[in-house]
């Protein structure tokens, strides 16, 4: 096969987790795809849907419980036992520390990031089953969400794409 045929042309990313470390990889991969001229869509499902709920997507936090790789005060510090991660405010504190590091790298907050991906021609979709289960309406979503899709429609739109699950 030639290099052109091997080149990835389209990606469909499924964002299923609602923690900061669950959402950012999906956003970064979608944005990075657009930067390379690759078509990109994100399908937000289950708690990942919180990334596109306008009342909640500026309050997304890191999970400090049940994360054996979590270290304090930085990535090479001592590991944070789950019982300490459960202290009130720990998640907010870890989130604020990481947000500062991300800002240094020019990684935008989630609402701005969604806007950038949308402006870059990326597509954002919400999962119908989750929308029904959480009793949401289109008013709950930020403007960049194009449509609510069934899984079937998601596969249809993903024709020819690499599907990435995060």
């Amino acid at each position: 096969m030639s290099e052109e045929q091997d080149r990835i042309k389209k990606v469909s990313i499924v964002c299923s987790k609602g923690s900061l470390e669950g959402i950012y990889p999906a956003l970064i991969m979608a944005n990075g795809a657009r930067m390379e001229g690759i078509e990109a869509s994100i399908f937000f499902t289950f708690f990942g849907l919180y990334a596109v709920l306008k009342k909640f997507n500026n309050k997304i936090k890191i999970a400090t419980v049940g994360n054996p790789a979590m270290r304090v005060p930085d990535a090479k510090g001592m590991s944070l036992p789950t019982i300490l991660g459960a202290i009130p405010g720990m998640s907010a504190f870890a989130t604020s520390m990481m947000s500062k590091e991300m800002e240094k790298l020019d990684i935008p907050p989630i609402p701005e990031f969604l806007e950038m991906i949308h402006d870059a021609g990326g597509h954002l979709y919400a999962c119908k089953a989750t929308v029904d289960m959480f009793h949401l309406t289109t008013d709950d979503f930020c403007d960049e969400v194009e449509r609510v899709l069934t899984v079937g429609e998601f596969y249809e739109l993903s024709a020819g794409a690499q599907i990435i699950f995060t």
Binding site: M35, G37, E115, A120
Partner: peptide, 14 residues
């Protein structure tokens, strides 16, 4: 961002 992508399609920053 929209303008940047329109001006330099298929890899705006690169």
């Amino acid at each position: 961002t929209k303008d940047l992508y329109e001006l330099f399609p298929e890899g705006p920053l690169k």
